[in-house]
């Protein structure tokens, strides 16, 4: 008896009235996968970079994120500390290992800083992103040895650092950057996880009323670094 796999593929081919694709037909499709063509991309990101940054900020706010701006990475600890104060949150944060070398916390001695992955007890995390998509205010984050995904989901509050040059127009530009970066690094296109995050967690399951903080973070704060 042939395997379920062969039977399913056989059934598909029978319904389509053809054998497995071969020759030029297959080659064309292989080419599409090797060099994916772009489809229609909405005009709204057709702006210069400043315009895209502006659109990104607007879309973040529309997705219920809060945004603060700083002029360099050295300003990030202070901005985080201020935001925690404004929101009345405890002065404790867990940072992604990828940030350890970039952030100097010595100016915010009252802030308790841990580094690593979340065990579910952390209130606030801070992570970098891979790209910011202006089209919809979407953050692209990838998993990596120094980028645990748990920091994006388990804490009540998620703070992300977006550097201005990480902001792209449409989603397709973020994929293009990811492909280039990964090809240089490991050769495979995708890490275990790519998270596209657009605003804080929410649910509409109670009588269609939107409620923040369903399972993931209740607050998503963006520190935009204009350096």
């Amino acid at each position: 008896m042939s395997s379920a796999r062969d039977q399913i593929l056989g059934s598909i081919r029978k319904s389509l009235g053809r054998e497995a694709l071969a020759g030029e037909d297959a080659a064309k499709l292989h080419e599409k996968l090797a060099r994916p063509p772009r489809n229609l991309i909405p005009d709204r990101t057709d702006l210069d970079h400043d315009g895209q940054v502006g659109l990104f900020k607007d879309k973040l706010v529309a997705a219920a994120c809060s945004v603060s701006e700083v002029s360099g990475m050295d300003q990030v600890p202070k901005a985080l500390s201020e935001w925690l104060g404004r929101e009345n949150l405890a002065a404790r944060v867990i940072q992604s290992p990828a940030l350890a070398a970039d952030l100097d916390w010595s100016d915010t001695p009252t802030l308790e800083v841990k580094t690593g992955m979340s065990d579910g007890t952390d209130e606030t995390s801070i992570t970098p992103i891979f790209a910011g998509v202006a089209e919809t205010g979407t953050l692209m984050l990838q998993s990596d040895a120094s980028l645990p995904t748990s920091l994006n989901f388990l804490p009540e509050n998620h703070v992300v650092i977006v550097r201005e040059n990480q902001i792209v127009g449409p989603l397709e530009d973020a994929w293009a950057r990811l492909r280039t970066a990964r090809a240089a690094e490991s050769g495979e296109t995708m890490p275990r996880t790519v998270n596209l995050i657009t605003g804080p967690s929410r649910t509409g399951d109670i009588e269609q009323k939107i409620q923040m903080g369903a399972h993931g973070p209740r607050r998503l704060h963006v520190i935009l670094v204009r350096d």
Binding site: R192, V194, N195, L196, I197, S201
Partner: peptide, 10 residues
């Protein structure tokens, strides 16, 4: 415009 989480698992 986008749901909050779009997750690609590989």
């Amino acid at each position: 415009e986008m749901s909050v989480y779009t997750t690609f698992s590989t």
